[in-house]
């Protein structure tokens, strides 16, 4: 389950911390159905109006939950994720940055076996507009997120915020947002996210926000080539020098691998409109929606 809905029960691991509390309150206010939190030291108490459990396992045996979002420090994530996965979480949203990759691969292997969807690590989370969000996207800001027909996915939270602001200021809105994260090993790939948005109700156009490094945009292009819906993309890092990690562990060009040129070429071959700068997204959406309208009128 990649796109969490308002009816899904959500657990917050690390709910009692400063960030956990701040964002839990925002998630609740927006409509996310928070059913509990986890902090082994505060089990049995209440926080943000929901019960605090000693573990995800206890939470599952208590009231139960569908998805979990983790506000957990890097070296604690493996244990917290394993707890949630073994408890039967359908979706684990992993926000934390700088988790050792071997830890990530460890809980990813368990997630695969249990059929759990992992989103992240190193993501700002996901959002279903006017329903709920998990993580720390500014979904409640109506100059950035507004109900509409554009599905958005991104490796970067800050860049997605900018892109979503441009979408709204151009007069459009979103169905859902999926932040997949900036790490090299990710639970949900660009292609997975595009597939999920493609089949999500109300989505008519998809905006892909990628960046240099790895081959996820190239892999996604193979799927995009088979899609009916138009896809608009921006790829960050065209001006980044090779061999330097640009903040995200995944964003690095080594030799010919992961270059801007390779991604742009693959996406354009799949019919994607690749933007020069994020500010061009409004014009690109106008064109995409115009083409849809024409097609629905039967104009070739």
């Amino acid at each position: 389950m990649k796109i969490v809905r308002r009816e899904h029960r959500v657990l917050v691991q690390g709910i009692t911390g400063k960030q956990g509390t701040f964002w839990t309150e925002h998630m609740q206010a927006y409509g996310t159905k928070i059913v509990g939190g986890v902090n082994p030291k505060k089990a049995g108490t209440e926080h943000c109006g929901v019960p605090v459990y000693g573990s995800a396992k206890d939470a599952m045996e208590g009231g139960g939950f569908d998805a979990t979002v983790m506000f957990i420090p890097a070296l604690g994530v493996k244990a917290a994720a394993m707890d949630a996965i073994e408890a039967g979480a359908k979706t684990v949203v992993c926000l934390t940055e700088h988790i050792p990759v071997q830890d990530v691969m460890y809980f990813m292997a368990a997630a695969k076996e249990h059929g759990t969807t992992v989103i992240g690590p190193n993501t700002a989370g996901s959002a279903t507009i006017d329903e709920c969000f998990l993580g720390f996207m500014p979904v409640f800001n109506d100059r950035i997120f507004k109900k509409g027909n554009v599905g958005v996915m991104s490796r970067s939270g800050s860049l997605a915020t900018l892109m979503c602001q441009n979408i709204v200021s151009a007069g459009y809105g979103q169905t859902a947002f999926l932040g997949i994260g900036g790490d090299p090993v990710l639970g949900t790939t660009t292609r997975d996210a595009i597939e999920a948005l493609d089949s999500f109700e109300g989505t008519e156009v998809i905006v892909m926000v990628g960046e240099i490094g790895g081959s996820m945009e190239e892999d996604a292009a193979e799927y995009v080539a088979t899609m009916d819906k138009p896809v608009v993309a921006f790829i960050a890092g065209g001006a980044a020098p090779p061999g330097k990690k640009m903040g995200h562990a995944g964003a690095i060009v080594m030799g010919d691998k992961g270059t801007y040129a390779s991604k742009k070429k693959a996406l354009e071959a799949a019919g994607v409109n690749v933007l020069a700068t994020p500010s061009h997204v409004g014009d690109a959406l106008k064109e995409a929606f115009g083409a849809i309208k024409q097609a629905s009128r039967g104009v070739p």
Partner: peptide, 28 residues
Amino acid sequence: ANGAGLTMTTMDVVRHHGGNPANFCEIG
């Protein structure tokens, strides 16, 4: 700028308008 993706993009847009970024500095 804040965030790796946004900072990279800011550099890209500076370059797009014919300028040269002096740095990548991310406080996200």
